[in-house]
Amino acid sequence: MGRAAAFILRRRGGKGWHWTDIVTWVWLIGGLFIMFGPALWLMFSSFKTPAALAEFPPSILPYTSQQVSVEGHDKPLTLYDVTLPDGTTKKLAEVRRIGLFSQMVDPAKPDETIRVNINSRKPVQELSFATENYTGPFVHFDFFRYLWNSVFVTVMATLITLIVNSMAAFALSKYEFRGRSVAMLIILATLMVPLSVIMVPLYSIISALGLFNNLWGVILPTVATPTGVFILRQYMLTIPDELIDAARMDKASEWQIYWRIVLPLTAPALAVLAIFSVVWRWNDFLWPLIVLSRKELYTLQVGLSIYSGELNVQWHFILAMTVVTMIPVVLVFIFLQRFITTGIAGTGLK
């Protein structure tokens, strides 16, 4: 321990501690708790039973009171640690509570009932994970449907984004043609058009196309992202034109040049865009909320928001569903975070 502390507290060049060092470590450790704490708290909570969720002060880990079945009683009884008048403690099961007293039995001797003051008993707690929080939503909420809808939207939108944007980026980086700068300008100008500004007319267009209450109505407006065109175009500009000229010499068609030469060489940028797109589409909320009004079409985000907005929120299910909704993003965070951070740092786009 001492050596570990010495290692952590060691300063470069053996210099003493400066106040900025203290600020640094307070900020970092504080950040660690504030950034991860809330999500971890949610995860621990999601394994608690509804009764444990209503407790205050709450426990960090999911505990439930232990139950025993006692001869002569139909229902399982709650087990308590009881301090008897003679000072000894015993594990007893509660039969019923009358006022300040409770009638208890020793599970070993089910015939004798003992009267105990309720202040001298404490429920026996055991660690137990309420996995029914996770299985319940599949039965009660058609959770599988939402999961499938989310996966469908995410995968389809990402595939189309990659194809459509890479084609456009190819045209804008490797061809000279009339209207190229106009096209670039249009894309640049609309980079800053947010959904909230065009919500109303976009909705009418989607309806006119018959895409209201249709997953494609969620997918299509999102796939021509200017960000994607930019990332890919910047990358394609670095591919030498000689490569393309050589391929033309060998009688390759333009389509073949696109998908056999340019696309494989753009793989790193495509990967970045794919990761971005998966996170964006998985997290989309407002637009799906507007387009999807039929229950069986909800994505996870919409379903979660609807059920958490009900008068009587079934928090034990909501928490578990939230954790499931977080899983893909957490996986991206653990394994692919590096791509995203370098992507953002390089382009300043999110």
């Binding site: 950034m35 999500a39 977080m326 965070f333 975070q337």
Partner: peptide
Amino acid sequence: AVFFFPVLLSPVVVGLIWRWI
């Protein structure tokens, strides 16, 4: 990565996490 983590979470998840807290 620690400070970047919440950026990836969906707004719905963020809202629910804090409503719960």
